[in-house]
Amino acid sequence: MKLGINVGYWQRNPEDATETVLAAERQGYDSVFTAEAYGSDAFTTLAWYGARTSRIKLGTAVVQMSARTPAATAMHALTLDALSGGRLILGLGASGPQVVEGWYGQPFPKPLARTREYLDILHKVWARQEPVTNDGPHYPLPFPGGTGLGKPLKSIAHPVRSSIPIYMGAEGPKNIALSTEIADGWLPLFVDPQKIDSLFGESLKDRKPGFEITATVTTVVAPLEEALGWAKVPMAFYIGGMGAKDTNFHLDLIGRLGYAEEAARVQELFLDGRRDEAIKAVPDELVDAISLLGPLDRIKERLQLWRDSPVGTLLIAGVKDEPTLKAIRELADA
C-alpha cells in the first residue's frame, strides 16, 4: 500500500502547504493531491507544488467537471503533466447540483452520461490522432448553431503522455461502476476499509488490472478523544453543508455506511445554524471507522485494516509536520 497526502483546498493567505509537500517527498510519499469546491481551484495550487518538487506525483481530488469544458480540462492537464515531467493524476468528479447549478450555472442532470462524454473528449485531445469532434448531447463539438464557423481542431501542444491517468471521485454505486469501466482509478472520500467489499464489491467487480483505489483518510495523531473531536469538524460540514437538504450525496453515503438517522440529525442541526451541536452529533464510531485517529501505536493497528482492503494508496489528510509524516510512513512500511 502506497502513501500520499491530500492537502485539500487553499482558502486564505498566507496558507501554503509547500513545506508539507516537500516533507512528504523527502519521506518517500508517492503523491500529493489538491482539491476544489467553490473557492480556490485545484490546478493552480498543484502547479505551485509541482514546481517545487521533482518526484512526487501530482493529483487532483477532485477537479469539478462543470467548472471547465472538457477541452479546457484537457488543456490544463496536458500542460501541467508536461511541465512536471509526466507526474499528473487527473482526479475528476461531477460534484452536486448545489455547486454545479448554483456556482457554475450549469445543468446537473444525467451526470453519468455527461461523465462518459467528458472523458471521451479528454482522451481524444490527448491522443492527437485527429481533430476533435463529439456528437453527444452534452458537449457537442463543434458547437451546433452560433456563428456556424466552428471547426474541429487538434491540440497544437504535444502532450508528453497520450493518456493521462484519470481517477473518478464517485460515491454512488452506478458512478463507481462507471469509473471501473472508463477511468484508471477511484477516489473515495469517506470509506470504511472493512466495508468496501460489502458495500462496493458489486460496483468494483469489473475493474481492470491496475485499477487504483486511492482513499483520502483524515489523520489526527493525538489522544483519541481529542482526535475524534478534530475529525468530526469536516464530517459535519460535508454532511450538513456540502449539498442541498434533499440531495446530498455525502449524507447518502453515510447512510449506506449504517448511520442514516445520525447523519440526518447532523444535517438538521447544521442547517439550523447549530454547528457546534452538529459536530458533536457526528458518531464517534463513524469518524473512527473512516479515519486514522489516536496515538501512533493505535494508528499502527488501524493501518492494518487498510492493508487488508482493496485500497492501493492511502492519502493522509490533516498531517502537516515532517516528524509525523515520517512516523506514519514507518508504520505503513513495518
Rank of each mutant, 00 (worst) to 15 (best):
A67R: 15
A67C: 11
A67F: 13
A67M: 11
A67Y: 15
A67H: 15
R68I: 04
R68V: 08
R68A: 07
R68M: 09
R68K: 14
T69I: 04
T69R: 11
T69G: 11
T69F: 05
P70F: 07
P70H: 10
P70G: 02
P70I: 09
P70T: 08
A72W: 12
A72S: 13
A72N: 13
T73A: 05
T73F: 02
T73C: 08
A74Q: 07
A74R: 09
A74K: 03
A74T: 05
H76D: 12
H76A: 09
H76P: 06
H76E: 14
A77R: 00
A77L: 01
A77P: 02
L78V: 03
L78W: 00
L78M: 15
L78S: 05
T79Q: 10
T79E: 07
T79V: 10
T79I: 09
L80W: 07
D81C: 00
D81E: 00
D81L: 02
D81S: 00
D81P: 00
A82W: 09
A82F: 12
A82G: 14
A82H: 11
L83N: 06
S84R: 06
S84V: 06
S84E: 05
S84I: 06
S84A: 03
G85H: 03
G85I: 00
G86H: 00
R87W: 01
R87I: 03
R87F: 02
R87V: 02
L88V: 15
L88S: 09
L88G: 10
I89C: 03
I89L: 07
I89V: 09
I89P: 02
I89R: 01
L90P: 11
G91P: 13
G91Q: 07
G91Y: 04
G91L: 04
G91R: 03
L92V: 10
L92E: 03
L92P: 06
G93K: 00
G93S: 03
G93A: 03
G93P: 02
A94H: 12
A94M: 10
A94Q: 14
A94W: 12
S95R: 11
S95T: 08
G96E: 12
G96M: 12
G96V: 11
G96T: 13
G96A: 11
P97E: 13
P97D: 11
P97S: 13
P97L: 04
P97N: 12
P97W: 05
Q98E: 12
V99N: 13
V99Y: 11
V99A: 14
V99G: 11
V99T: 15
